[in-house]
């Protein structure tokens, strides 16, 4: 097997592959490694496409051909999958993907105003990237953090309880190269580094950040104050029985 993957001819005249667009041997080997994790290789396609994005900054024609080759399916089949899921991007994504939740609850709580302010401030529209290539702005759907509304995601890390001002501060800090932390998670990595984790290649940040954010603990705090617990186990205690509640 050649170490250099052949560039698909005629796939996209407008997107003639620059040298950096060619998938390297390491990435090809990792694509095979992902497919091998599953009982049936095609199950690896979603994480494989995440890896393509990590390696190339977007879904490229070469990446599609490579996935098709590894899985023994047609490029059209891979393309069909790549165009179905919203996390896969056909245009280059900035170092930081900023997603503002504008589903109903976050929108009502301020997400609409945050999104408007960021569009103005960054001078981009939805799903567009700033000229310096640093920020891609997108409005997103519910990201399962409604108790922290309004919510913004940066490279799919939680930025909870935002205001238009705090959101502007975050993007300004990111553009200035200052370290930014998720409000209940780690320091932010780049979008391409994040995509690599999604492909199933962990980084070293799992231990960063707290166990839970404050809203996640709202009920537990009250239970602790009042001394409320689940009932004791109904099984006869054998001494080695572990108290789980």
């Amino acid at each position: 097997m050649s170490t250099e993957y052949p560039v698909a001819q005629g796939q996209a005249q407008a997107e003639a592959a620059a040298p950096s667009d060619v998938l390297d041997a390491t990435t090809l080997a990792e694509l095979r490694e992902i497919a091998a994790r599953y009982p049936e290789p095609r199950s690896g396609l979603l994480p494989m496409l995440h890896l393509v994005q990590s390696a190339q900054g977007r879904i490229t024609p070469e990446g599609i051909e490579a996935c098709a080759e590894v899985l023994g399916i047609s490029a059209a089949e891979v393309n069909g999958v790549a165009t179905f899921y919203t996390m896969y991007k056909r245009r280059p994504v900035g170092d930081y993907h900023v997603g503002v939740c504008t589903n109903t609850l976050c929108a009502v709580m301020g997400g609409d105003l945050i999104f408007e302010r960021l569009k103005e401030h960054l001078e981009v529209g939805n799903d567009e990237t700033t000229e310096d290539g640093s920020i891609t702005l997108e409005h997103i759907e519910c990201n399962a953090a409604c108790d922290y509304a309004p919510v913004m995601m940066v490279n799919w890390e939680f930025m909870d309880n935002q205001t238009p001002e705090s959101a502007v501060q975050v993007v300004d800090d990111l553009r200035a190269g200052k370290p930014v932390h998720s409000t209940r998670g780690p320091r932010l990595c780049t979008w391409r580094e994040a995509e690599r984790v999604l492909a199933g290649f962990p980084d070293d940040r799992a231990d960063e950040g707290p166990t839970a954010g404050p809203a996640s603990l709202a009920g537990l705090r009250i239970a602790r104050e009042k001394g409320w617990t689940a009932p004791a186990s109904t099984l006869a205690s054998s001494g080695e029985e572990t108290d789980r509640d």
Binding site: T211, A212, S216, L217, G219, L220, R221, I222, A223, R224, K226, W228, T229, A230, P231, R244, D245
Partner: peptide, 13 residues
């Protein structure tokens, strides 16, 4: 039973 019964959330703090 108490009003709140932390089981799954019990170790979150």
């Amino acid at each position: 039973t108490d009003a709140l019964t932390p089981v799954l959330t019990d170790n979150w703090d």
